[in-house]
Computed example of a mutant assay.
Amino acid sequence: MNGALFVTATSALAPTGALMRALLPLLGRLLSVPALRGLAVDRLGRVRVKAAPGPRKHSRGRIAVSLSRSARRAPGWCGA
């Protein structure tokens, strides 16, 4: 812990419902108690998450193809 009194963080994943906006300040006050914070950290450390699948071996992307003989550009696909 860095000892900061307040921490501001932004995320598109933060809960924005009215109930959560009302409860988050209370939750922040509760977690300022060292014993409760330690319990919460311990519980979060025990959470099991499913491993994310690995990246694809191949992917495709859209490209614009132009031949040197013509000025015409055609849509195409690029494989990597």
Rank of each mutant, 00 (worst) to 15 (best):
R21D: 05
R21W: 00
G3K: 05
T10M: 01
L23V: 03
K57R: 12
T10F: 02
G3E: 06
K50A: 15
S11P: 00
L67H: 12
P15Y: 00
L67A: 12
G38K: 08
A74G: 11
M20N: 15
G17P: 05
M1G: 10
F6V: 01
R72N: 11
S11W: 01
G79I: 15
T16V: 10
T8P: 00
L39Y: 13
S59G: 06
S68T: 08
R21A: 08
A35H: 10
F6E: 02
L31R: 01
V47W: 05
G61F: 14
R46Q: 14
V7Y: 06
L67M: 13
R48T: 13
L30E: 09
P75W: 01
A9F: 03
S70N: 09
C78H: 15
V7I: 12
A74Q: 15
G38M: 08
G28N: 03
L27K: 05
A71P: 08
L26Q: 09
A9M: 06
L27D: 01
S32G: 11
L19A: 14
L13I: 00
P53K: 02
L5H: 08
T8V: 06
R29D: 05
M1H: 14
G54S: 06
P55H: 02
L19R: 07
G38T: 10
V33Y: 05
A64V: 15
V49Y: 04
L23Y: 01
L5W: 09
A14V: 06
L39P: 02
R21I: 00
G38H: 10
T16Q: 10
V49W: 03
A74C: 14
P25F: 04
A64T: 14
A35Q: 11
C78I: 15
P25A: 02
M1S: 12
P34Y: 05
A51E: 07
L5N: 06
A71L: 12
A12P: 02
L13Y: 01
T16C: 08
G3T: 09
R56L: 09
